[in-house]
Write a protein that binds this DNA or RNA. Sequence first.
RNA 1: GCCUCUGUAACUCAGCCUGGUAGAGUGUUUGCAUGGUAAGCAAAAAGUCGGGGGUUCAAAUCCCCUCGGAGGCUCCA
Length: 638
Amino acid sequence: MRILQLHCDYVAYKPKQRALKSVPELSEEEKKGSKLENAVIVFSSFEVGDNEAVLLEAIHAVKKNFDEVKAENLLVYPYAHLSNNLAPPSEAILLLNHFLKLAKEHVCKDAIKSPFGYYKEFELKCKGHPLAELSKSISSQKIESTAEKLGAEKIIVEAVKPGQELVSDSLKQEDKTKRYFKVMTPDGVMHDLDKFDFSEHSNLKTFYDYENKKVRAYSSEPAHMKLMREQELVGLEAGSDGGNLRWYPKGRLVKKVLEKKITDLMVDYGANEIESPIMYDFEHPALKKYLNRFPARQYIVQSDDKNFFLRFAACFGQFLIAHDASFSYKQLPLRLFELTRYSFRREQSGEVSGLRRLRAFTMPDMHTLCEDLTQAKQEFFNQYLLCVDWNNDLGIPFETAFRVQEDFFNENKEFYTKMVAHIGRPVLFELFDLRYAYFITKFEFNFVDQYGKATSLSTVQIDVENCDTFDLNYTNSNGKKAKPILLHASIPGAIERVVFALLELQGEKIALKQKPMLPTFLSPTQVRLIPINEKQRDYCEQALSELSKHGVRVDYDDRTDTLQSRIREAETEWVPFVAVAGEKELMEGKFNVSIRSSGRQEKLSIKELIELVKNETLNQPFEKLSLPPYLSKRAKYN
RNA sequence: GCCUCUGUAACUCAGCCUGGUAGAGUGUUUGCAUGGUAAGCAAAAAGUCGGGGGUUCAAAUCCCCUCGGAGGCUCCA
């Protein structure tokens, strides 16, 4: 328990608005508030583990002060902000009531309290004498018996039951009319959450719990943070702001391949790739309006006497281009795409985390202008399919949430049923009656990690607001100006989050004692050549140039360490194909290749090995690794 | 932003409670070892103990301030 006591000439308060859903309405009398003269106000925070002994200790402190300053009135003011370890409201209310009872008995028989769970305005004039301001922190561990100090008899406290239900049924009902969750199964049936059997869908349950903030995450560092360092992919940069990372050659390779993959996908889908500035004028009228609707925290950059904010998405860059472009219904849907390196969001310091939440991140952002709602729905559906394929292709499991305005859902039920049927497992629906943002509907694919946290990856939204804000128009078939419907889409969410999910999945494998590895097309080294001794040098160098010529990322361990230690290092680097050559292999014209995915060893010729790698990376982009192929020439970056 | 934990060699960490000459493993360099599928042997180099102030004869260690990192909180009286 924490208390702050102020001795005041007067103190007055008035309840304004309910802050906690679980507290009852106030009576007319309580709503008026109160004013006390020559009073001690006791701001009180009730904490986890507080009990009668704690309350008595606090009363003792209050009484001592109250008598000393010769106050006449006492106000107990529940005040959460003194503690970071608050008792749940249900317990705190009982503790507060008992605290008041003790205060009446021992300190001031006319003591009153202000209501719990309401925002209140208050006004006070604190006296200036040395005892006018006192604060105290009391915990059950530190208490000696204080009943004697008070000269009080033992008082029995009413049992405080953890989690005691204080919510009335009518209040629950009221909540539901605003925003509520349902589950849709692939057969198109909507289920109430309390009736849905989650037993075969534990990740969906975890996701829902996370959405509902019922689950507390473990307080451990996520697995990917260690892995990104160990694999020489990404490091923290103390010389920059938090959440701005450094990417080493191997990490840059992984990121570059993913960037190429999404860019190719978008261009093949019909997007026009553009590049827009990273900073924008705060005073631009359209941007001003948009900023109010999307109150992300921004970095600010000064130029002369003007302030610019660093973009937090590609939206405005593309909207401003679309505003100035000329197009008619014949060119719709019109898709603009940019791989933002970077988008900036000045997340609060305590919120930045590894690759999961950053202040500078790479978002492949596409916006689609559609002729009407029919076309918008078609695009929404197509982009939904792209997202499903994208995540399946990378082997990233996900849970789906659709968020929809109620009316729109009821008018378009078929539309959603079709999409849920496509992925063939239950998904979460959040329905809301009043539109709280610029979108009328959206979906998100969420990655659920081993700590019970959900992270949004893919998302597409139908925006019914920003065509007005940014004055985007097309010419319709009558030659008249018309408003398009706008879609926002990020198929991967953010490149960093893809890496985050892939690494977290490897962390889970390691925990299960399985061999971790990245998909071959993302592995910085796809084939590692290891000679048993110097005599196979020429043979390996020949293989190196042959594999390299065929677009395989290959390197050569030319160091003089023992065979075992070189094999071990290839294993710890998750190399998918480790090709060893000794006397025998040289004679046969082959390599003894360890295949990581199967754990098997096979004798393969270079031609066969190339074929194998090509097979595993079919239809995937390729980029070169910017490190010397000779391991003896490589610097270490971790 | 608030709270808790944390900062010691390039990396991972011990030492701090109870003040008294700065430690280990890994990596790096050098020498030996030429090895058949997850760590060969030996030696060396390497540290303003995050930064600043204080207490003390003496501070990595105790106290205060400050800066970085991790986690939690930020619909909460």
